[in-house]
Amino acid sequence: MADRKILLIGTAAAVGVLAGGALFLTQQRAGDPYAQCTGSAVAGGMDSFGTEFTLTRDDGQRVTSAEVFNQPTLLYFGYTFCPDVCPLDSARNAEVAAIMEDRGETLQTVFVTVDPRRDTPEVLADYTDMFSDDMIGLTGSEQEIAAVNQGWRNYYKANDEDDQEYYLVDHMTNTYLVMPGGHTVDYFPRDALPGDMADSVGCFLDAT
């Protein structure tokens, strides 16, 4: 009988701890307007992504991060000489923006190069225009591009040891959702589908 009482007390205590933990998590998430939309869990949270910057837009103008992120944005890091991944991802991101436009929502797309040596503003303009008239291309100095990539934890490496002209660049392929003011709220892997991305973006826009 004593053992039964101990078991019941232990079970009740465990339930209490679980209930308390659930309440604590609910209270913690209650202050987050995007809690129901976030699909990504990363160390440090999404607030750890991003940085202020000044880069060169594909029309040759110098722009700040505040000027770029003046509306909801899909942000992607790639390069124009990329043979396969970057064109596919850029086309998908442009499709997501088109879906949102059909739904009456505004979503811009931004392409930041990881290959500033070859990706001049003119090269970026020709490249982004293949996917959307509204896609923004950004480049800068080697140091500026390195700082921006570091801000979004984006790994990249040019394989140019043997060829300084036709080299490839290793890089990550996440697409980030950045809200006005430069607040990164989520990211999408390269296998994310346009419709699913649009639904997720819509959730964030509705919660804003």
Score class of each variant (00 low, 15 high):
residue 4 R to D: 14
residue 16 G to Q: 02
residue 17 V to I: 15
residue 24 F to A: 14
residue 25 L to Q: 12
residue 27 Q to R: 14
residue 29 R to D: 13
residue 32 D to K: 02
residue 33 P to A: 01
residue 34 Y to T: 05
residue 35 A to M: 00
residue 35 A to H: 04
residue 38 T to C: 00
residue 38 T to S: 09
residue 38 T to W: 01
residue 42 V to G: 07
residue 42 V to Q: 11
residue 43 A to N: 11
residue 45 G to D: 09
residue 50 G to D: 04
residue 50 G to V: 08
residue 51 T to Q: 07
residue 53 F to D: 08
residue 54 T to C: 03
residue 57 R to D: 13
residue 58 D to G: 08
residue 60 G to L: 09
residue 60 G to W: 10
residue 62 R to F: 06
residue 63 V to M: 08
residue 65 S to I: 03
residue 66 A to T: 13
residue 66 A to G: 06
residue 67 E to Q: 15
residue 67 E to S: 09
residue 70 N to Q: 13
residue 72 P to C: 06
residue 77 F to G: 07
residue 80 T to Y: 02
residue 84 D to M: 01
residue 89 D to R: 07
residue 91 A to W: 08
residue 91 A to S: 14
residue 91 A to E: 12
residue 92 R to Q: 15
residue 93 N to S: 14
residue 95 E to N: 15
residue 96 V to I: 11
residue 97 A to S: 14
residue 104 G to R: 12
residue 106 T to E: 15
residue 108 Q to W: 10
residue 110 V to D: 12
residue 113 T to D: 00
residue 114 V to L: 00
residue 115 D to A: 04
residue 115 D to S: 02
residue 115 D to C: 01
residue 116 P to R: 09
residue 118 R to A: 04
residue 119 D to A: 05
residue 124 L to A: 11
residue 125 A to W: 03
residue 125 A to Q: 13
residue 127 Y to L: 02
residue 135 M to P: 02
residue 138 L to N: 08
residue 139 T to I: 06
residue 140 G to V: 00
residue 142 E to A: 10
residue 150 Q to Y: 07
residue 150 Q to N: 15
residue 151 G to F: 12
residue 154 N to G: 05
residue 157 K to W: 02
residue 159 N to D: 10
residue 162 D to C: 00
residue 164 Q to H: 07
residue 164 Q to T: 09
residue 165 E to A: 07
residue 167 Y to P: 01
residue 170 D to M: 05
residue 183 H to I: 12
residue 184 T to D: 09
residue 185 V to Q: 09
residue 186 D to R: 14
residue 188 F to W: 12
residue 192 A to M: 14
residue 192 A to R: 13
residue 193 L to E: 15
residue 195 G to H: 12
residue 199 D to Q: 11
residue 202 G to W: 06
